[in-house]
Design a protein around this nucleic acid. Structure first.
Lengths: 202, 202, 202, 202
DNA sequence: AATGAATGAGTGTTCATTCAT
DNA sequence: AATGAATGAACACTCATTCAT
């Protein structure tokens, strides 16, 4: 028995499980994208994942839990892509970065995002602050307090609007099949800066 | 001269039955609002409507047809509320009117609107130009060509973005339970005019 | 008011009813022929007949009664076509005549005959001697007693077999779409006379 | 050298399930026999089989597939019983054997045979040569070409008639509740040989 | 008498979930 | 842990029959 060069962070058993979970989640994602909510059955997911339904239920207590996990995964991926340089130093850059991350995220798997957005509402209440919207809105709020914005609205309200309009524009673009990230980013930025009454960064 | 935007719809077979159709559609709407897509069964709709399933199927060839009819009804209501004074004379006013109509519409039955938006994608392809989005985008495009806008984007693209951001902001507001139409309208107008780079009609 | 040359056998009201009954029965027959047992619904029959379901139920207490009536009608048509010259004088001619009548009948509306044959079994017991088979078998039995047949079987048994084999051959021919009555008649005669051990009438 | 006539059939997925398939098919057969086409519902079949509807649908994609499978089973049983000694050496014996097999088959489960015969017409077209009738007629045709028969009809036509008259006689006997196989066989043989104009094997 | 809208029990079928192996 | 056959409640939809008009 050799010593692996890279030490596993989990025991083999756990690693195997983690891998299975990953495979199942990805299968769920693909089923949602290709067959929609109607074709999203536990049997279909298990089959595509190459595991038995029984196994699926070993890892997820039910279908909703699977959906919720997928939601968490997608949210996590987004949040990870959102780390940005010191917002205190340059709030404008931070806002631009955020917009860019949003665009990139929604353009990545637009149909999946659309369906998960919808399902989110139906799922058993999740911890506050857990959801993507809540976290993003919080971050935007922080940024706004450092910008010379004076619309007469509370920062939190503006943050909500910014998130919503960004999502609206990007979702619609995704549904139309747009893929030009740069151009889309420009348009979103125009909307956001316009809303805030700020001149756009050149 | 007003431009009527209500499209003529096929009249239900009989005079008496028109009422039954109306009752069934409203029941469907309420089931969707209160029980979501999961609770939206033909039996539940029939029961709430106070008719038998058989009757429901006498008026609608299937569940999807019922959903589509409901979608038509909601779209029709919206389009009817969209009649506006001569857009040629005052494009800005026309745009304001449109924004107002959107806000009012989405605030009317937010959950219903949300679910129907979602279902629309799954429904058998409908006539182009039939959908609300298509019609609205067309109208907005027309208005934009008369405004001193220079963003470098095609009017149709801008129209799409305007519709999408409006919908995004208003949907999110609806989901949060906001009901203040005036205030919401102000925020949407800020976003739209900001996006277009126009000073807001004071 | 003039006196009609041909006096109606029923009062106008009855005549009108009789006509309606006729129309409904024919509609039922056509539905069975073209859409099979699956498409044979009271609504379909009423529609094709040009009357309301309500009317149908005014004339027939239920679906099975309609089917039974149709069966009676078809049987009656056959029996009427079966009248033949004195069987005592020439039994062979009588038998030939019978065979001809059978062939003609089953070739007339083969699919209808096939389905009614099947449905007959399911229908509430009918009066003995009522059915076509019973009547025909009786007639054949009578004829056989006058022919120099000696197969060791009782006439009634032979009559049953003759009817059954005739029906078998003609039904199969009908299903295959054969329409040559003369040729079919020859083949049936061959089978019948062969079974009886009689030389065929030239 | 015997000519096997059993056609190979697709084997059910698993070893264990073969038994379940068998049980379901037998339940379907019994329901058809005892309750007729009307009582033949998937739920009734499943219940009598002692399995859940879900299981039934695991093995058969739909009700028609179940019926078709039953048809295949019955056909297979018959064909298996039809293996006969070299028809070239003794065509008469082969024909007798065939008649015997037919009689035995139709007498085995007459009501089931009757209903399946009827349903066969309605089922989605099956492969040519697949059906019992086609196979049997083919075999009879072969035999006839080796017999000194001269009726002026093509062998295939005669084969069809022979099959049809045999089925007619035996079905009728079955419906009447006859069970004496030997006697029935004698009568069928009389009809067949008489039709062919051959003296009967004593 | 005639209509046809209304009824609702009953049908075929699906799918989340369980559990014996 | 893993399997996948088994379960059965629930769904969309049909159609014989009724009954207010």
């Amino acid at each position: 028995m050799t010593t692996p060069l890279v030490k596993p962070r989990k025991t083999p058993a756990q690693a195997r499980s983690a891998e299975t979970v990953r495979v199942i989640l990805e299968a769920a994602a693909r089923i949602l994208e290709t067959r929609g909510l109607d074709g999203y059955t536990t049997n279909a997911v298990a089959e595509l994942a190459g595991v038995s339904v029984g196994s699926l239920y070993q890892y997820f207590p039910g279908k909703d839990a699977l959906t919720a996990s997928l939601l968490d995964r997608e949210t996590g991926i987004f949040l990870a892509s959102m780390e940005y340089p010191d917002p205190v130093a340059d709030s404008r850059a931070a806002l631009d970065h955020l917009i860019g991350a949003c665009v990139k995220h929604q353009l990545r798997r637009p149909e999946l995002a659309r369906i998960l957005d919808f399902e989110e509402q139906r799922l058993p209440l999740r911890d506050q602050q857990e959801g993507l919207a809540a976290r993003l809105t919080g971050t935007i709020t922080e940024i706004l307090t450092r910008l010379p914005v004076d619309t007469g609205e509370a920062p939190r309200v503006m943050a909500g609007d910014i998130f919503a309009m960004t999502r609206g524009i990007v979702d619609a673009a995704g549904e139309r099949g747009e893929t030009d990230e740069v151009r889309l980013r420009l348009r979103v930025a125009r909307a956001v800066y316009g809303y805030l009454g700020l001149a756009q960064a050149r």
